[in-house]
Amino acid sequence: MAAVDGIDNEIKSSALELIGNTPLVALDRIWAGPGRILAKCEFMSPGASIKDRSSLHMLQRARAAGLLRPGQRVVEKSSGNQGCGLAVVCAVLRHPLTVAMSKGNSVQRAIHMEALGAACVRVPQVEGTYGSVTHADVQGLEEACLKIVDETKAYFVNQFSNVGNSEAHYRTTGPEIWRQTGQHVDVFLTTVGTAGTFAGTSKYLKEKNPNLLSFVVEPAGSEPIKGDPITKPLHLLQGSGYGLIPDLFNYEHMDGTVSVTDEEAVEYMNAVGRQEGLFVGFTSGANVAAAVKLLRSGRVPRGAWLVTTLNDSGLKYTPVPRELTL
């Protein structure tokens, strides 16, 4: 924050200072109780998703370690949100950025990151369809990234295995939730893609409250963390539920899983918009659906304060198929 003549003001020095410190909102119109659903508004960061946090921390960490030099190109594979977050950070820190993204991910994400100066390489899908991206599709991005790294000597972020990913949430998301709730959190849950958000946030909150219950939200039919065979690799939850246990995931910080169907995710995505006035994406809808399921199930204490994340803006998505909106 800048100061003029020794007087503090509220002018931010760059978009980087807009990342994090997102509001926590009560979804009291969707869930009137007992208990409460509290949602972290991650769509309000400048890149419009929770991935802004890890983008900033991973690049700052790499620069401090000398792994990323001033002006060096940055490369990453992404479903789009990490690419948009990196585009925000790279624009400010003056790093050229190339993002490899599956053609199955919504084109709105490519438009977003390219508007911020990034280059987006759209990679053909291996087995998925537009709007549904599988683990095989993500694996197909690796070759594109490594080729660019070899040709340009770029820094490869590698969010799926980068410990700075989960560390970002241990240092920021967890402490913010703990402070904003007045140190009253009974349950934390979220979807898992790289597992950075879940790993870092649940670790921090469990250190503060050993009795806290943390749950992973998985798309129905793609629940490897639960231990079930993959029967539905294609689903609407872009950026999560890839059908594998991520490198950053740790069972030590998990108390259970919640399954959510595409239809449930869409239902609650729409409910968040129409009842709470917030336009969010599919994984946000899945998180709220899972929160309602848990509070109805008896798996968590009656009257529990449950915190989840609204991961990104609904503006990042192509409209859902009509049959899922009925």
Rank of each mutant, 00 (worst) to 15 (best):
G35A: 01
C90S: 15
V89W: 00
A154K: 04
F156Y: 15
S79A: 15
V123C: 10
A154E: 09
H95P: 10
I19F: 01
V126N: 10
G80P: 06
V88W: 10
G131E: 13
L141N: 09
I50A: 08
S54G: 01
C120G: 07
E76C: 06
S45I: 02
A62K: 08
T129G: 02
Y155S: 06
V25M: 12
Y155R: 09
T129C: 11
P46W: 12
I37T: 11
V75P: 07
V89K: 01
I111Q: 06
L24C: 10
A64K: 14
N105Q: 12
A32D: 13
P34V: 09
A119Y: 11
L97V: 08
M101K: 08
P34E: 08
K147F: 05
R94D: 15
Q159R: 00
R94A: 14
V75H: 09
S106R: 05
R69W: 02
G131Y: 13
G71R: 09
E143A: 15
L38M: 15
H57P: 00
L86F: 01
P70A: 11
R73T: 13
R94H: 14
A39E: 11
L116S: 04
I111Y: 11
S106T: 10
G83Y: 05
V92E: 13
Q125A: 10
R36M: 14
T98E: 14
L67A: 13
C120D: 07
Y155N: 07
M113T: 06
I50G: 00
S102K: 11
L67K: 14
M44A: 14
V138H: 04
G80M: 03
A154T: 04
L141I: 07
C145F: 12
V121P: 02
R29A: 12
R109V: 01
R36E: 15
K103G: 11
S102R: 11
S55Y: 01
A119H: 14
S79W: 05
V89I: 07
T134L: 09
V25T: 13
D52Q: 00
V157Q: 04
N81H: 03
V89T: 03
V25D: 03
G85T: 02
S102M: 10
Q60V: 00
G83I: 05
P96F: 05
E151K: 13
L59I: 03
D137S: 10
S132T: 09
D28F: 01
A64M: 01
Q82G: 08
C41A: 15
E127W: 02
S79V: 05
K147Q: 15
K40P: 11
W31Y: 04
L141R: 07
V25Y: 08
L146A: 10
L68R: 11
L38P: 04
V92A: 12
G104W: 08
A100R: 06
V133Y: 04
K77T: 08
V99D: 06
K147W: 07
V88G: 12
R53L: 02
A62N: 08
V89M: 00
N162K: 02
G104E: 12
V163E: 05
Q125G: 08
I111S: 02
L38W: 13
A62E: 07
M44E: 14
I37C: 10
